[in-house]
Each structure stands twice: as structure tokens, then as C-alpha cells.
């Protein structure tokens, strides 16, 4: 389970994330939406323990990601938007490195073969990461995230750069994770996908959460009746509009 309470991240005088609070229950997929610069990636990086929040907390399976970093991260997997990987490791070595970090070597050999097959990486197992295409890197990044037994998954724009087959596979993977009891947070610009795949959405603008709820709950907001998620999103994030109170 993931719980975020009053998360704030400031860079000098600029507030990238402002008092963000939400919960994701086990078996739930939540989409994090917002225009460019809304603070989605910063929020995800704070939750993943990469950036240090200025205030507030991110609790993963009951452990604070700042105070109890190691235990919190044991249950967490993070897939960045444009994955920067270790160029001089092979695909297999990269996965092994992650398994070593998470101390899941006993199950690694079995899981590795499964993931390599699932993401069509078998032929590339001995290829250096430096030689992989963008799509292959994205697949490897996802495979690495699944190498350990995480139950909180964070995806930052996971479908960018992946071919349609890979995208379908990844969406199925995310749903499988949800069905397996994981809490999944997906940051995306693909509103159709968010509408179809996610149980709930959070919309951010200028670092603040302006609304959260199911798509049906958003439709019940004043003036949003019968609208698609895309229309609701554009109405709420348009710079001229005042944000309604979130649910």
C-alpha cells in the first residue's frame, strides 16, 4: 500500500510539488495526470526515494521512504520515463544487478527467464545496454522493475517509445500486478489509456493536486457531466480556469 501525506518539494524558491496527499490501496491502479511541468515526475521521484521531500512523507507498506529507506524500497519498483541504464552491462547483468540490490538472487534465475521471454529480450540477453534501441531499453527497465517482489509499482510515462505489441504487453503486466494485489501509480499523458486501465485518476497542475477520484466521480463535478476524461482534463488544467475543490 502507498500513502502520500502532504508531500512538498521545493527547489530554492520554486515549489515543484505542493502538499500532495493520496492513498493507493492494494489491487488499485491510479493514474497521475497533469500538463508538462505539473510536478508528476518530481512527485514520483520523491516517492521512489530519489529526491528528498522538503516536507511531508511517502509511506510504502508502512515504512517512510526517508526515515526507513531500505525497508520502504524493498517493496517498491520504479520505471522512469526515459530510462537511463548502465550502458556497459549486458541485459542479463543489468537484471542480475537489480536482483543483487534487492537480495532476491534465490528466485532470480527462474524469474529472469520468464521476464526475458515475456519482453522478447532472450536474443539480447548478452547484448550491452549501449546497443539497445529506445524501446528495448524501456522493456529492460520494466523487466528490471519486476525482478524483485515489489507490491508498490511506480511508472513514469511507461508507454512512451514502446511498440504496440510491447505496449499491450506492458498494459497487461500492469493489470496483472493489480490483480496480484499491487498498488500501482502510473504517470501518463495518454488519457485514453488512463481512462480504460486505471481505477482512479489524480490530476495535478503547478505542483498541486486539483482533483482525484474515479472517472465517474469526476463526471459528477459541476459542468463535467457526460464528458470524456480528455475533456475533463483539458477543462481542469486550462490555465484560465480556477480549479474546483478536489474530492
Amino acid at each position: 500500500m502507498l500513502e502520500v501525506r502532504g508531500l512538498t518539494k521545493e527547489y530554492k524558491k520554486f515549489t515543484a510539488v505542493n502538499q500532495l496527499s493520496f492513498q493507493i490501496q492494494p489491487g488499485e491502479i491510479v493514474a497521475l495526470l497533469g500538463p508538462n511541468g505539473a510536478g508528476k515526475t518530481t512527485a514520483l521521484r520523491c516517492i521512489a526515494g530519489i529526491l528528498r521531500p522538503t516536507s511531508g512523507e511517502a509511506i510504502i507498506n508502512g515504512f517512510d521512504v526517508v526515515q526507513d529507506q531500505a525497508r520502504a524500497k524493498m517493496g517498491l519498483a520504479f520505471v522512469p520515463e526515459v530510462p537511463s541504464l548502465y550502458e556497459l552491462l549486458t541485459v542479463e547483468e543489468h537484471m542480475k544487478f537489480i536482483a543483487m540490490c534487492f537480495k532476491t538472487m534465490p528466485t532470480f534465475e527462474r524469474l529472469k527467464e520468464e521476464l526475458l521471454e515475456r519482453y522478447n529480450l532472450q536474443d539480447k540477453r548478452n547484448a550491452l545496454v549501449a546497443t539497445l534501441s529506445k524501446g528495448m531499453r524501456q522493456k529492460l527497465s520494466v523487466a528490471c522493475a519486476l525482478v524483485h517482489d515489489a507490491n508498490v509499482l511506480l511508472f513514469d510515462e511507461p508507454l512512451i517509445g514502446i511498440d504496440p505489441e510491447g505496449a499491450r504487453e506492458l498494459k497487461d503486466e500492469i493489470r496483472r500486478a493489480r490483480d496480484g494485489g499491487c498498488s500501482v501509480l502510473v504517470s501518463t499523458h495518454l488519457l485514453d489509456t488512463a481512462e480504460k486501465m486505471c481505477d482512479r485518476v489524480i490530476i495535478m497542475r503547478r505542483g498541486k493536486m486539483i482533483v482525484q477520484g474515479t472517472v465517474d466521480q469526476l463526471r459528477s463535478l459541476e459542468g463535467m457531466e457526460g464528458k470524456s476524461l480528455e475533456d475533463i482534463f483539458l477543462s481542469l488544467t486550462h490555465e484560465d480556469k480556477e480549479s474546483p475543490s478536489g474530492q
Binding site: 521512489a48 526515494g49 530519489i50 529507506q69 531500505a70 525497508r71 520502504a72 524500497k73 524493498m74 517498491l76 519498483a77 520504479f78 522512469p80 530510462p83 537511463s84 541504464l85 548502465y86 550502458e87 543489468h94 544487478f97 537489480i98 540490490c101 534487492f102 527497465s141 528490471c144
Partner: peptide
């Protein structure tokens, strides 16, 4: 640090 450290290593439970 390399970008890979940020995206890969920092998200693991290895102590800073």
C-alpha cells in the same frame, strides 16, 4: 553520478 545511478541504483534499497 551517472543518470543510470539516479534511475536504477537510487531506487534500490542499497543504503546511501
Amino acid at each position: 553520478f551517472r543518470p543510470a545511478d539516479v534511475d536504477v541504483l537510487f531506487a534500490t534499497p542499497v543504503s546511501p
